[in-house]
Design a protein around this nucleic acid. Structure first.
Lengths: 229, 229
DNA sequence: TTCAATTTTAATTATTTCTACATGATTGGA
DNA sequence: TCCAATCATGTAGAAATAATTAAAATTGAA
């Protein structure tokens, strides 16, 4: 499903937006600060941005401009005053839509859906298939071999990436260490099986909130590992 | 300039819209009847459609749906009542925007411009190769084969330029050295791989502030290189 | 042909990643 | 509860890969 980043300093509003968007099965991240928001926006790969105009740090105008320089996806600006809409338009920052507070959550959801649908219609139309796996905040882009956890990019080594991707592509299937070693290292290599253990741990350090209670790669005692879904 | 088709039965309104759009250098056609309007819309090569909801013959709902089946360009719906906007949205006809009568002509023009600008941005960006690539201070002009970094021109040799341009045109995609050698040298790679490394280094010396922390061409250990965006 | 610029090759150095191993923690059954 | 099997984790050295440098080969223009 699509991922959305909300940059909004009023937490109650952000949470409300998030709740409604999640009801429509969007994955939503929130950032309350302009500076941090920009970094998150540029580093994470989101399908849409919702920006408040008044923000601590970098304001919505600047944010919109900076994101648009790099990203092509829809940007929705949230303003307190209707007059500000004309200002944003006049500046030509590349925002796609404007919504004035207070707004009804269903209106927000409707607009988000419309923008994402249009974006897909225009950009993805030649059946550009994304090489992506996305599950519970974990996103794997096979083309660029990058991994994000809740919008934050994590750097993976080649083996780590291959192992995680293999498991994620075969969710819920239990693989023994021997099987994993054979598929990822090749039959010829006669190494130590514990290598697999070490790599699983490295991956867990990067993607798990609490490595002793893994959400993604589960240990099946005496059997092997599986990617839980 | 862009061509716009207005389908609107109230002649005075249609003419007003046309006048203002022409002031902004758009080419505008008007059709007052739904049936004829549909034919004209499908036959003609327009960049945008402005449809009134209430029309003799085929109404705006149907019109929008039928045009969208064939055309990808922006559609702006004009309604008399605000409540109708939700109805159109709900039907998922694929309209891009909605404006309620009465509206100010400048508002109309602003929206038309915004939609056309976005359409260009989305449709032209990935597929059609621009002659100029510009990203984070790096500017590449393919026509004159020149490169600037933060406004300062750097002299590139032919191979260096081709390699940089190829990577920059496929941002975030990782290419192995073998792939790069084959695409840029056009030969099967048999051991000449280090040539690629050397060229990447030469390019980095010219465009990177700190060659050990590359901002543009990133090394993916054990995999290859990618142009980061 | 000559000469300068460019490209390739080769050798060396630097860095990253992998693996083996040691130690300690956890699990599940006796 | 205890114990043996299994797993987690940290560390150091090995292996693999990339960066750098310099020198040789090639190209192309005068």
């Amino acid at each position: 499903m699509s991922r959305i980043l909300i940059i909004e300093d009023e937490e109650s509003i952000a949470e409300l937006e998030k709740d409604y968007l999640e009801l429509s099965n969007f994955e939503v991240d929130i950032e309350g600060d302009g500076e941090k928001g920009l970094n998150k926006a540029l580093a994470g790969n989101y399908d849409m941005y919702i920006l408040d105009l008044m923000l601590p740090g970098i304001d919505g105008f600047e944010l919109c401009k900076r994101i648009r320089e790099v990203k092509n996806v829809p940007i929705l600006m949230v303003t307190a005053k209707k007059e500000e809409i004309d200002k944003i338009r006049g500046l030509g920052l590349g925002a796609d839509d404007y919504i004035t507070k207070p707004f009804s959550p269903s209106e927000l959801v409707a607009r988000v859906k419309a923008h994402l649908a249009r974006y897909d219609r225009l950009v993805q139309s030649p059946a550009i298939q994304k090489d992506e796996i996305s599950i519970r905040g974990l996103r794997i882009d096979k083309a660029s071999r990058r991994v994000w956890i809740n919008g934050e990019e994590k750097v993976f080594t080649a083996k780590e990436f291959d192992l995680l991707t293999f498991l994620a592509e075969n969710p819920n299937v239990i693989f023994s260490k021997e099987q994993l070693f054979e598929t990822l290292w090749g039959e010829e290599s006669i190494g130590d099986i514990s290598t697999v253990t070490v790599h699983v741990n490295k991956i867990r350090e990067k993607i798990e909130l609490n490595t002793s209670k893994p959400q993604y790669i589960e240990t099946i005692w005496g059997v092997g590992y599986r990617f839980k879904v």
